[in-house]
Design a protein around this nucleic acid. Structure first.
Lengths: 247, 247
DNA sequence: TGCCTTTGTGTCAAAAGTACACTTTGCGAA
DNA sequence: TTCGCAAAGTGTACTTTTGACACAAAGGCA
């Protein structure tokens, strides 16, 4: 059979997380600064690290995220695997790995995850090799360590595609929210304007947001009604086969 | 900094391919039988193998597919990575690996790919550790080696989702095809009936199929017009931002 | 009291979706 | 040659959804 042999090559596996947040105005992503290394210019990176021996990928992503940023109990969804043999090609990245890894030249394949969280529920606490962790505006991200910019773009595309299929995004908002906030959220993700009335009509017809008996207070204009997400109805909607939700 | 250390663990990476074909009636997937090993009951598997040192993931998937089935020059799209620590848990799979791999217990993370091809353009030619390669009806797949059934299901779901976003699927048909074939194809993928007239109307409005000056011959009923796919218009459609194509 | 700001609402026309049945074409069998 | 069979191909009426668009209501503040 002469199969036994040949290409049983070892690689390293890591996970990187693209965590989206929303500040009621713009979309943001949680980035870290790596611990400084002599001669390596600072650059932001996605939180990510090598996986453990006995972990599955989802668990690894959750653990790594927690280690680097303090964020915990977050539902992560896979984006894709990135495995270009020279995905680490910037000299600064190589230098940094030399300072930090035992075997800095080992090939690393990474599995990217993304998630949507309500920024106010999580206060990033950098640790491990993260010097800082902060929410960076999506529009201001233009260079990242390793191939993280590419990963970030893939995650953003996935988010846009997904929100056109399913009314996701409520994770980015607090429990009670106004229609304007929801509206703005959609505009931020999709990157274009949506007619206020049409947005409201379409969203309400789905029956997954529910008006509360509570209004904004202390605002110098007509106060907004608060709404909450109805998860039960949302799940029903998913069950009965749901796609094609687009703006 | 005390970062250097710890979990720099080696893993193996493989790719597995879910190749969909269409026999004008039902959807099929290309499966292999592994070379028999004493005491290991036969079981079908997706074509897949470990990646090489200097290959990126996409290239690896293409090469592995070619080695095992002879299929070449196929556009493969990633489904997801599967990395459960015990994704190899059937005794028969373990036995087979023991016979075939130097290090049969090494953890393997696999990156799954899928593709759509016209069955008639490719005659599967098993080689390497594939004893046979054949097109199996999707409906008849219920057990596969390793975690390949799970991978197959993920790929099928991805295909269904995608066909609701974009009119893909032409790769599954020959260059010229009838509307009935296209219609049947959609029904096979989606798993439900579609009204003939409405299907035709919706598809024609997209302007991506073009009628040829040629009809079926020798059929004992009204002969069907042949059509071809217009890739140019399809690309135009994609460019101008296209989603929400559902039945 | 008047001004400013944001919320919240309705209508109409165009487009898309849905449900549904009969005629046409060509072969083959009687 | 005619009849029957099988699949292709076509249209309409009704409902639902989309998309474009403008003004009144509420509350704070000066």
């Amino acid at each position: 059979m002469q199969i036994k042999n040949k290409h049983e090559i070892n690689h390293r596996i890591s996970t990187d997380c693209v965590i989206f947040g929303f500040d009621f105005n713009q979309l943001r992503v949680l980035l870290i600064e790596r611990q400084p290394v002599e001669g390596v210019p600072q650059m932001m990176a996605l939180p990510g690290d090598l996986i453990f021996e006995e972990e599955n990928l989802d668990m690894a992503a959750g653990r790594v995220l927690k280690e680097l940023t303090g964020l915990e109990e977050i539902y992560l969804e896979q984006v894709a695997a990135f495995g270009d043999p020279n995905r680490v090609n910037k000299p600064s990245d190589k230098k940094w790995l030399q300072a930090v890894r035992q075997d800095p030249d080992a090939r690393v394949i990474t599995v990217a995850y993304y998630s949507l969280v309500n920024m106010n529920d999580y206060e990033p606490q950098p640790s491990s090799f993260a010097k800082s962790a902060s929410w960076v505006l999506v529009d201001e991200i233009n260079e990242l360590a390793f191939d993280h910019f590419e990963i970030f773009q893939a995650a953003l595309k996935k988010l846009k595609d997904k929100i056109n299929m399913q009314p996701i995004g409520f994770n980015l908002l607090p429990e009670k929210f106004t229609f304007s906030q929801l509206h703005k959220l959609y505009e931020s993700i999709l990157g274009n304007e949506l007619d206020k009335r049409n947005f409201r009509r379409k969203m309400l017809k789905l029956n997954i947001v529910e008006s509360l008996d509570e209004k904004q207070e202390g605002v110098p204009h007509k106060p907004s009604q608060y709404f909450k997400f109805n998860e039960e109805n949302y799940l029903k909607l998913l069950e009965k086969g749901f796609n094609n939700f687009g703006f």
